[in-house]
Simulated assay, not measured.
Amino acid sequence: MKTILYARVSTKDQTAAHQLTQAENAGYLVDDVVTDQGVSGVTTRLAERPQGRRLFDMLRSGDTLLVRWVDRLGRDYEDVSDNIRAFMRRGVVVRTIINGMVFDGSTQDPMQRAVRDALIGFMAALSQAQAEATKEARRAGIAHAKAQDFAGTKFRGRKPSYTREQFDQVGVASEQGLGTSEISRLVGLSRQAVLRIQADPSGCEQTLQKWGL
């Protein structure tokens, strides 16, 4: 039985190292790391990602699939919930680093199964809502940047201290009610950077757009 960490990182200058560190800090012993690099999580289904397809081939009954959060497992509500259930049918236990969620198909008690299934639906819906909010913020940032360029304002200001991945992570973790210090530790940013993103997510999104991040 193995514990496999699946990581998705959105740009070439990012790695799965910080997600592995998070997993180890949470007490997990990871046997293998599977990483999709440069793949959009909001447009590409898990089964259509190169390493996402590999997960379906390599996971066996009794294995644990570890992800930072359920949004790693699909592009929208249907994809996330379908994939979690597909892995559970195989006897795979799905666990999240954030909040330590556990989705186990071996549960037989009907009440526990009902709670588990309701939680899958809620988490998948929350992930899609976050993805939609991120897409909308990106569209707004692009529109703002174009307007600034049209007006002749080319100065981009200071390069942001956070990546696109970290910006998205702060948004998800904040939605989950995590404290500033915990978010700072999980995503590898200073508390000041986390507070800045939380206080003005739209402005931070626009800064990322100005820098093409």
Rank of each mutant, 00 (worst) to 15 (best):
S181K: 14
R89F: 00
R196E: 11
G105M: 04
L213W: 01
S61P: 04
V115W: 05
L65S: 08
I4A: 10
D168M: 12
V187K: 13
R138S: 08
L119T: 11
T3H: 13
R49G: 10
R68M: 10
F155M: 08
L213Q: 11
G121T: 02
G188N: 01
L46Y: 04
V39F: 12
D31T: 07
E165W: 08
E48L: 09
G74I: 02
I84P: 04
A7R: 13
A145K: 09
V115E: 14
A143F: 00
G157H: 10
L59A: 11
A145T: 13
R191A: 08
R113T: 08
V94L: 11
R138W: 03
Y6R: 09
F150C: 00
G100S: 15
P110G: 11
M1L: 08
A199P: 00
L73T: 04
A137E: 06
R60N: 13
D71S: 11
V30N: 12
G100Y: 09
Q51G: 03
R85N: 04
S202D: 08
S184V: 02
R139T: 01
A131Q: 09
Y6L: 09
D200Q: 07
A16F: 07
V39T: 11
G91W: 02
A124R: 05
T44C: 12
G177I: 03
G38W: 02
R116D: 07
T163K: 12
V9W: 03
R72E: 14
G105Y: 03
V34W: 08
L208C: 06
V39N: 06
L213H: 04
A145V: 13
E78A: 10
R95G: 04
L213E: 13
D76P: 03
Q22P: 00
S127D: 05
L66D: 06
S184K: 05
A129W: 01
I84Y: 05
Q198V: 07
A133Y: 01
N99P: 00
V115L: 15
L195Q: 13
F155H: 13
T35V: 15
L208T: 06
R49N: 05
Q37F: 09
A140T: 00
L59G: 08
S202M: 06
K2W: 02
T163F: 05
M111H: 14
A131I: 00
D109G: 05
P50R: 15
S81D: 06
D117V: 02
L20G: 09
S181T: 08
I98S: 15
H18D: 13
L119K: 14
V33K: 12
D82N: 14
Q130F: 01
A118N: 05
L29H: 15
L178C: 07
D32S: 12
L73P: 03
G177M: 06
Q108S: 14
M111D: 13
E78G: 08
Q130N: 11
S10P: 00
N83S: 08
V34K: 14
V33G: 07
M123H: 07
S81P: 03
E48G: 02
A151T: 01
V172E: 09
R49L: 06
D36A: 12
R53D: 10
Q128I: 01
M58P: 01
Q206F: 04
R196C: 01
K135C: 02
K210W: 10
G157E: 07
